[in-house]
Amino acid sequence: MMIHISPPHQHGGDSIRATMLSVMIALLPATLCAVWLFGWLAVWQIMTCMGVCMLGEWVALRMMARPSRLSDGSAALTGLLLALTLPALVPWWMTVCGSLFAIILGKQLYGGLGYNPFNPALSARVILLISFPLAMTSWLLPAATMPAAVDLYDVTTTLTLFFGGVESLGLTLDGMTAATPLGYIKTDAMQGIAVAASLQAHDYSYFNAFVGNEGGSLGETSALALLIGGILMLARGTIRWHIPVTYIATVAVLAAIFHAVDADRFAPPLFHVLAGGLLLCAFFMATDPVSSPMTVQGHIVFGIGCGLLTWVIRTWGGYPEGAMFAVLLMNCTVPLIDQYCRPRVYGHR
């Protein structure tokens, strides 16, 4: 029988693996930054996440009798992304649970690569946040501001911390953790303290927020590292600019308007842009191809929606950070966006 193969007979050479690899390379600055901030603890978290994700993928595909897809790197990327959204001090079993959830419930049960409606890493993080709210909001102090008793650059100390928790070192959480900027302005606002005063009380500096020297998840604190990664992806054409730009711009514009109206209650735009997981979500989560719209028009709608929800949740919601909820909520709307945001076909009116 003759096998018919249609043109084109020339391929540009892009592949899923190359795409995933390119995202991972773009995450390298943020990963290095995490290691700088949280020492070996970051390494253990990242290695656990990536390892368990890959293992989970292998087992799941094995059970479904499908060919292995480990080599395309999508599971490893999910693991890396999940790790970067976790606080450094999360105990190992939580990390393992989260990773398994991301791969098995977040991805494989929907049909595997390409079929998951939600970003697997983000959905796993949200499940962890809801299941273990205390652990997921205890932000370890960066190594530089850590009390001298704990050396995060020491392998044994960090391994003990990772597997045994704070108690095994005879310490308490209070001495080692600090609230994130978004967290403390929210608590202070409830006590009627103005934004500026709250920031001043906590020695907030834009410079620290920019380089990442503040409380937060492993990979979300350093705006600089995330920007480098984002620009790298944009330059390589891995992602398009529409989602991150509209996302960040929406948050900034909303923050600017409300800040101008009432500077005591609403934080300034630059604070919002640098704070929390916004940049990580804007460049790496919202742009996840599988769970975001396909067309440029769709991207713009999606980005604006993400920005709107992020700002609304941050300002009026129960949680201090809203970026991941915003992205997950917008993930739900993707089929609808794809349905309506189709470009005008050539020659049609």
Binding site: G114, P289, V290, T295
Partner: peptide
Amino acid sequence: EPCIRCGHCSDVCP
């Protein structure tokens, strides 16, 4: 391989 919905195809479609 499965479509990862990257949208490159609609980007390049003339």
